[in-house]
Design a protein around this nucleic acid. Structure first.
Length: 403
DNA sequence: TCTGGGGTCCTAGGACCC
DNA sequence: TCTGGGGTCCTAGGACCC
């Protein structure tokens, strides 16, 4: 999709059309640009740029917080259209998808014809612009769709892949970021074609398996690699996380503890939604000078219970916190398992109590939204939290539940 | 200019096991 | 008195994507 977030905002507020618009937050907030309209890009504003920088570059830009639910809804609508063309659709992100069109020629015609039908169908269903790349591999299809923007269709005829890629800046290749670009420049590699000329041994030693596969691509070989897997079958998530950057850095232990609890609750809720149990808990800690640490702990059993995650997260935090002001906290769950596993010989009655309590909480949140129940634990003293952990019946106050 | 939040994948060292 | 080779798991960090 082209300038997806901005385009969706324009559907809801047509007065934004043609104006410099920045989605991501207010101009003076801590945060970065999620999406910029083409008018804003003219001023040098681009995604991932700090909002404050964007404001300086383009003071007249309209800054909007954005509406994730709207983007998800439109993403779903696009997916529905795509599925009418082939069952082998893979959403690569909220605004990108791969379609395996193998064997659909009789139904949809040759590649360009099929692409135009698809383009029209998406526009009709969503009133949004998109671009389509057609090729024999994901990598080339993705790069060609980028080259087709805005609102275009580009077909790389089989056999022409290497010639298409060769003159492009190395940075146009997904997977080549700032660091790899610098490394490649240091080797005199600026264009994809430059990679093709280098010896395989050198490329592998310097850029690993991935660079080797890319060099193969640049020579027109179907070299395989991560970008050539089967399209279709969505995969289960491998990690779930939440993080928060404070408006202003804080060294207040209570505030930090309560944030860890809040983040852990969100993570645990998502684990329950996915129906998985996590064995490894990780925290992220960023100080004012932006130095960032992660600390992780593998538990003796997998869990999806708020307090177990929160306890592990707080323990990890206090083990490494220097008492300096904190800019960001994050809680991550990974190493998923289908159930808790059998590690404890003694049944723990408290776990069962929590399971019931949390099921009720999830139900209320499902019905009344995430604010239907507010976290009591997050505002509790450590002592009281321990008491509630022993027995959820100790949870005080019926008001939030009633609400 | 002052740097979000959600993810994936890769590397590398050390512990531990056979 | 100098110490292998294979494997897996755990932990930390980092590049990259949207």
């Amino acid at each position: 999709m082209d300038a997806f977030f901005v385009s969706v905002e324009e559907l809801f507020d047509p007065s934004l059309k043609g104006k410099p618009v920045v989605v991501g937050g207010k101009a003076d907030q801590r945060g970065v640009v999620s999406a910029a309209s083409y008018a804003a890009r003219k001023f040098g504003v681009h995604s991932a740029m700090p909002l404050r920088t964007a404001h300086k570059l383009c003071p007249q830009a309209i800054f909007v917080e954005g509406h994730r639910e709207r983007y998800s809804e439109y993403s779903r609508r696009v997916y529905e259209v795509l599925q009418r063309f082939t069952p082998r659709v893979e959403m690569a992100s909220i605004d990108e998808a791969y379609l395996d069109m193998t064997g659909t020629e009789r139904l949809h015609g040759p590649p360009l014809e099929a692409a135009h039908k698809l383009h029209n169908a998406v526009t009709e269903a969503t009133k949004l612009n998109c671009s389509i790349g057609i090729a024999t591999s994901r990598l080339v299809a993705k790069v060609s769709s980028d080259q087709a923007k805005p609102n275009g269709v580009l077909w790389i005829v089989p056999g022409q892949e290497a010639d298409f890629l060769a003159p492009l800046d190395i940075r146009k290749i997904p997977g080549v970021g700032k660091v790899t670009e610098q490394n490649m420049h240091a080797c005199g590699i600026r264009k994809v074609g430059d990679l093709a000329k280098l010896g395989a041994a050198f490329v592998e030693q310097r850029f690993g398996q991935w660079g080797l596969a890319l060099a193969g691509k640049a020579r027109g070989l179907d070299a395989g690699g991560w970008f050539d897997g089967e399209i279709g079958d969505g995969h289960d998530p491998k990690s779930v996380s939440h993080e928060h950057t404070f408006m202003t850095d804080t060294a207040d232990a209570d505030q930090l503890d309560s944030m860890l609890t809040k983040l852990s609750e969100k993570v645990a809720r998502r684990l329950r939604d996915h129906g998985v149990f996590s064995r490894t808990v990780q925290i992220k800690l960023r100080y004012s000078d932006f130095t960032t640490f992660t600390r992780s702990k593998t538990l003796d059993h997998a869990t999806q219970i708020d307090t177990e995650l929160a306890e592990a997260a707080r323990a990890l935090f206090h083990k490494s916190w220097t008492k300096q002001p904190v800019r960001l906290l994050g809680v991550y769950a990974q190493q998923f398992e289908a159930n808790e596993g059998q590690t404890s010989l003694i049944a723990e009655p408290r776990t069962d109590g929590w399971r019931k309590a949390l099921a009720a909480v999830d139900k209320i949140r499902g019905k009344y939204g995430d604010d239907g129940i507010v976290s009591l634990a997050a505002g509790m003293s450590a002592q009281f939290r321990a008491k509630v952990h022993e027995n959820p019946e100790n949870l005080p106050g019926k008001e939030p539940a009633k609400k």
